[in-house]
């Protein structure tokens, strides 16, 4: 196949900044982000099951390892690296630190992004709702009890600051 049919120039917004890249059809979103020196989305299971490669596209979380890079053409791509661009950690990030909600940290960006997604849709989730929402993220260090605490703590902080 002629390269011109498999390679494409795409333009998208990356953490609020317009960017472009020339990518082959088989390149996935994790590969693409690596070209921008963003390493927070990481391929682990390669099957969309562990959540280590979570990326938010047009406000919707997806598995970067199962997303073809060419398909983000024209879209808004947000990664973990975009959360603290002001220099301050997000309330979720801070809650994860305060509750010690990780060990090795490899899965943490995915959990943090998914927690943001959850709290945007459900500002006061119950524990079963937290478990249901985060069931698609795996932590082999099994910091799950701490993660659940961190989600609850982040939720109450965010509700408090929204009320203020």
């Amino acid at each position: 196949m002629d390269a011109s049919e498999t390679v494409k120039k795409i333009r998208f917004t990356l953490n609020g900044r317009p960017v472009s890249a020339t990518v082959e059809s088989h390149v996935d979103l994790v590969d693409l982000l690596r070209r921008f020196d963003l390493g927070g989305a990481r391929e682990s299971c390669g099957q969309g099951l562990c959540g280590c490669c979570t990326v938010v596209v047009d406000g919707v979380a997806m598995s970067g390892c199962l997303t073809l890079a060419q398909l983000v053409d024209g879209k808004r791509v947000d990664t973990i690296e975009g959360l603290d661009q002001t220099g301050a950690l997000s309330p979720v990030q801070q809650a994860f630190i305060d509750e010690g909600a990780f060990q090795c940290g490899f899965c943490t960006p995915g959990f943090v992004l998914m927690t943001h997604q959850l709290l945007e849709r459900n500002p006061d989730p119950s524990e079963p709702e937290i478990r249901d929402y985060l069931a698609g993220n795996l932590c082999r260090c099994a910091a799950y009890p701490e993660i659940i605490r961190a989600v609850k703590s982040a939720a109450s902080r965010m509700r408090a600051s929204a009320a203020a």
Partner: peptide, 12 residues
């Protein structure tokens, strides 16, 4: 749907 695959898969 709530226990089908996971949120990211259901999103796409």
């Amino acid at each position: 749907m709530t226990r089908l695959a996971n949120v990211r898969v259901r999103n796409v």
